[in-house]
Nucleic acid binder design. Sequence first.
DNA 1: GCGCCGGATTAGACGTGTCTAACATCAGTG
DNA 2: CACTGATGTTAGACACGTCTAATCCGGCGC
Lengths: 231, 231
Amino acid sequence: MQATEAVEDYLKVIYHLVTEGEAVTTSTIARRLGVSAPSVSAMVKRLEAGELVVRRGEGGLTLTSGGEVQALRVVRRHRLLETFLAEVVGVPWDEVHDEAEVLEHSLSDRLEDRIDALLGHPAHDPHGDPIPPRTGPHNERWADPLTAAPTGSRFQIERVSDRDPEALRYLADIGLRPGVLVEVGARAPFGGPLWITVDGAEHALGSQLTNLLHGAVVTTGTTPIRRRRAG
Amino acid sequence: MQATEAVEDYLKVIYHLVTEGEAVTTSTIARRLGVSAPSVSAMVKRLEAGELVVRRGEGGLTLTSGGEVQALRVVRRHRLLETFLAEVVGVPWDEVHDEAEVLEHSLSDRLEDRIDALLGHPAHDPHGDPIPPRTGPHNERWADPLTAAPTGSRFQIERVSDRDPEALRYLADIGLRPGVLVEVGARAPFGGPLWITVDGAEHALGSQLTNLLHGAVVTTGTTPIRRRRAG
DNA sequence: GCGCCGGATTAGACGTGTCTAACATCAGTG
DNA sequence: CACTGATGTTAGACACGTCTAATCCGGCGC
């Protein structure tokens, strides 16, 4: 099956839904891609014919191994481009996602490899998302959300979801980036904000923001671990 | 009119044909783009409806001012990308054209400006082709072909056509790049090769190669002028 | 049980961009 | 003058990707 831009976009969205544990249905795909439900129906039929996805009762769709390979290729190009744009071109944190979104479809294998080498084969993009290897297994693990951290604990941020540029700008402003350590304070009741301390400053984060932050509770005394590049 | 990739490609080819002094006809466009003549007929009809080209008896088509603006935007992105890929990413001379060819359609204005600034607003791409400004007038002057230089003269190369990667590799190997000075030797008769001396070494160039080289005869005694960036 | 509601699909249409086959036109040449 | 060859157009088809409108279906409230 021909890997057009649309096909790549669908596979990528399906991959993300799967790894985020969301239902992979016509409506969730349509919502993510901003297209109508019938468009998704039609495309899914094509993807099934091309043996890139299969129906798996209830939960909805799954990628075949062939489909996953293609999805990972797109995810890899996207995250490599984000890293490249941020580190080499100096594109701000909150802009790299949108730029990579369009460039990812036009990146040749040759240029992909060159950028990968230039960056020293990075393992994570600027938001902390792992960059799949060109071939071989990939572990797309989502760390725990900040909301799961108990009051009084220390929490190290690993990933910051990259979808909302405005939120990203705010988070960057107050110093919330991958690798940063925060102290988890009180949680206001009835869906109220979560108080955290970062860099000695206190902030109240609404659920719209806390949902974007993933990481792990740090057992006391450990020095913050800075993320490093892969070998 | 919607500036799709296809539309951008057609406008770019028409622009190049015009500036190279070639006829802008259905068949020349078809040949350049590698599509059939009826495809060109159909697209030209759409471009006319969108007021991007007009028919101008005999010579064929011309770009309207609106069409030229769009064409120059594509040419600018292409040449900026070539420069960026060569200087920043380290892509070899003969590969930048093909890579830029696909990326040029996905480069946002924002990223274009950022790359332009990062490069210091370059005036020429690695092949010596002038980079159009984002707005305002642009002079796409083609210097004289090497074939026009008289035997015994010294010729400074300004532009090397970028279309043939194999030829580019060979030319780079023997040191023929923009800015380089060559001595024009004897011309073998009946379409035979042209002898030139560059870096003290003599080479016989067939017409396939001499057609790619453009520049100017240098009046004696002048030191070679290195191309520099614009202000 | 009936009706409603949300999700999914089918039906039908459209725009884009391409193709091949057939036809038209025009220049030159025997 | 009629044939040939190049060039260009029209006609008709197809693939892709999208849309809206209509239908279908399964669960739930009354």
